[in-house]
Amino acid sequence: MVQIRRLQEEGVDIIAIIGEIDASSSIELDLTIAKSVGEGFHRILVDCTALEYISSAGLGVFMSYIEEFKDKKIHMVLFGLKDKVANTFSILGLAELLHICPTKQEAKQLLNELSV
């Protein structure tokens, strides 16, 4: 089960994922990101501090946006990943394709640098 919350701060859309992302809940994540993009946000933060587990389908969601973000000049930064989750990202090599920061502060900073 997963709970996804959205919250806007200074033009940044913050998506907080609470719980586990598996094959079925990944659809919800996909919809949330799509909605954010649809609303015209160019800076997106994904709060993973409460993300307990992510399956390959969940990773597929992040992966599927990589090209689109590049084309639309949208920047997304993930932060607060638990070790286990971070390991999943790195094994798959997604860590090199996505921007991942330890804290929200750093994530925001990175987002600002990228947007310039």
């Binding site: 992966m63 090209e67 798959l92 090599g93 997604l94 090199e96 394709l97």
Partner: peptide
């Protein structure tokens, strides 16, 4: 060691990730 899954990068850039 370094290496990204197949199908994640859908361009010729993939060579930089493996």
């Amino acid at each position: 060691d370094k290496g990204t899954a197949l199908g994640m990068i859908r361009s010729r850039d993939y060579c930089h990730f493996v």
